[in-house]
């Protein structure tokens, strides 16, 4: 479902003496439907960079990034937008929403964007918010005023609302208590069971062992530093 081969990336900082910082070289991996792969490596090794390149918000320097039958490294913006609506989901570490929009609508939005009905979206949002223990009296409020952990759970609910065939999870269990972490792991297991290909970053080793089938060490893709 997700196949990456020989991807490299460097940042060029035009305003800081045109410094060129190579961050990745020869990255290759593939994830089959129903499989969950963990990206591991020290902080700064390039886990999030690789994940963002797959989602298309970082440009790949070279190489091939196939998600389904779309090459994200070379696709038109329009193709990537369709891919993100229908195929590729992403749970980031931060919730980014239009202020004033009620939580229920925030969570239901991906279902509507993928062509689902308003009723289906709302039903799914209610189910997920209840499972993730967000009190019902908060559902009609905007999540911008919620606590960090609550925002994180709203973000997860949003990410799992539509049944994406491919999912990217950036620290989905960070800052959650044991009960909610168990719910998130359950959601991941369910997504695997319905055939989703998942790439995740988990700092929490227990969570990683619970849901991931394989680990890929990203430091193997770090370019050798020239002295």
């Amino acid at each position: 479902m997700i196949r990456i081969s020989d991807v490299s990336k460097s940042f060029v900082l035009h305003n800081q003496g045109s410094a060129v910082i190579p961050v990745m070289e020869g990255a290759s991996l593939s994830v089959a439907p129903g499989e969950c792969v963990a990206l591991v490596g020290n902080s700064g090794a390039g886990k999030s960079t690789l994940m963002r390149m797959i989602y298309g918000n970082y440009l790949a320097g070279a190489g091939l990034i196939m998600v389904g039958d779309v090459d994200v490294a070379r696709a038109e913006p329009r193709e990537i937008l369709t891919l993100r609506r229908e195929v590729l989901g992403y749970v980031s570490q931060f919730l980014r929403v239009v202020p004033r929009v009620p939580t229920l609508e925030v969570v239901a939005e991906p279902v509507l964007a993928a062509g689902g009905s308003a009723e289906a979206g709302e039903a799914r949002a209610r189910e997920l918010l209840a499972r993730l223990n967000i009190p019902e009296r908060l559902w009609s409020l905007s999540p911008t005023t919620f606590s960090g952990g609550e925002q994180q759970r709203v973000n997860i609910a949003r990410g799992f609302a539509h049944g994406f065939p491919a999912l990217l999870l950036d620290e989905p269990t960070a800052s959650l208590d044991a009960t909610n972490r168990a719910v998130v792991l359950e959601l991941i297991a369910e997504a695997k069971a319905r055939g989703a290909a998942i790439i995740g970053i988990f700092h929490d080793a227990e969570a990683r062992e619970a849901v991931c089938d394989r680990e890929i060490d990203v430091s193997g893709f770090t370019p050798a530093r020239a002295a």
Binding site: N57, L59, P77
Partner: peptide
Amino acid sequence: DRLMVMKGGHVVETGLTDQVLDDPQHGYTQ
């Protein structure tokens, strides 16, 4: 959905909005 960055009458960069904002390529966008 998409973003176009202009400077001095010319388009210096285009792309997906979050790609242009998260990984800007042109010096002016940076």
